[in-house]
Simulated scan of single mutants.
Amino acid sequence: MLKIKLTAGICAAAFVLTACGGTNSATETKADGDFKPITIENCGFEMTIDKPISRIATLRQAGTENLFALDQQEKMIGTGSLRDAVLPKWQADYEAIPVLSKTVPTNEQLRSVDPDFIVTTQEGSYTKQLSGTREEWRDLGVATFVSNTECGTPEESGFELIFRDYEQLGKMLGAEKEAAALIKEQRSMVEKGAMKSGKKLTFLFGTKDGGLVYVDGKKGIANDIANITGSVNAFGNLPETRNEISMEAFADADPDYIVIADLSGRGLPGDTAAEKIAVLESHPAAKNMKAVREKKYIVIPGVGLDASVRSVEPLNIVAEQLKKDA
């Protein structure tokens, strides 16, 4: 059983490991299979795990692929909310795991597979209307995890918070070596993307009927991509990861480049980059933008804008295009 309690007043980004017997090792398994309990703090929750986690359910694709990257496929019993196609190297693994829901799984759908650990990258998944609150799962003895990007400080880079996710998940799941290797690999990729472009970017996530668009603001990976490449996110003053604005406001930003999220793997109307470009080139306010006239588009995999193992992909695509045009 997983014994879980909420600790009030904990620093939101804190993560503390206290193994029984005074050790700091997150997972200690003796030759006979004994497991030493550990105490974990994740975004304000304290959990004592007294047996190895073996039944993991994920609520969103970002969490699913993070676990794939840590080689945890065999422990996964259900996934949800596929934003785009998973990487080809993980397609067979994905198909072998039951899909609990095409959207975020409900509390009932999760209970049907009896998980002992639930992973998501977005705090908003843990509501009574969606997957159940962390308090509800705590009372059932089920551990929950949310990305540190949901509880980090404004001064912390989104990529460093993602790396903290790997480190914490690795310790909880006995995958410390996999986590360390992944952090090393991705930190190198982030460093490769560093430059000083001086360009203004807009990150167009989606379009909506009525001349509205969704742009990424200051709370998200898009803003980190702008910062790392020495660019300016034209809508970095907006408070949320996804912000709904008018096409007129979008056009007034007058960016040097429009970074367009392609979600073609999901297959919903308006998901492809081509469809979003068509909207821009036909809308009265947008079609006269310099970036639209000159087709200054940078197409990225939209799934990478959700904080995850995939986030280095849009960073490197944006950096490469900016370097090419410098």
Rank of each mutant, 00 (worst) to 15 (best):
L268V: 03
N223K: 01
D216S: 14
E275D: 13
G211E: 08
G220H: 08
L305A: 04
A194F: 09
R187T: 13
I225E: 01
A222P: 04
M195Q: 15
V292L: 04
H283C: 03
G217C: 07
E313F: 04
K184P: 01
E275W: 00
E294C: 00
N227I: 04
A253G: 09
P284V: 10
A261S: 15
N233A: 02
A285S: 14
P239L: 12
S246R: 10
S197L: 06
F203K: 09
A249P: 00
T241R: 13
A261K: 07
S197Y: 06
N237Y: 12
I317N: 02
G236E: 06
G236W: 08
E281V: 02
G198H: 10
Y257H: 11
V309N: 10
M195E: 11
V190G: 05
L238C: 04
L263W: 14
E313L: 11
M189Q: 15
L263Q: 12
K184Q: 15
T229Q: 05
G206D: 14
L305N: 01
A286C: 15
Q186T: 07
K196L: 12
T202G: 04
K184N: 11
S197G: 07
G198K: 09
P269W: 06
E313G: 05
P269D: 12
S311R: 03
G270H: 06
K200G: 02
R187H: 13
L305T: 00
R266E: 13
T272M: 07
L212F: 13
K295D: 02
E248T: 06
S188N: 10
L263R: 13
E185H: 12
V303Y: 11
N237M: 05
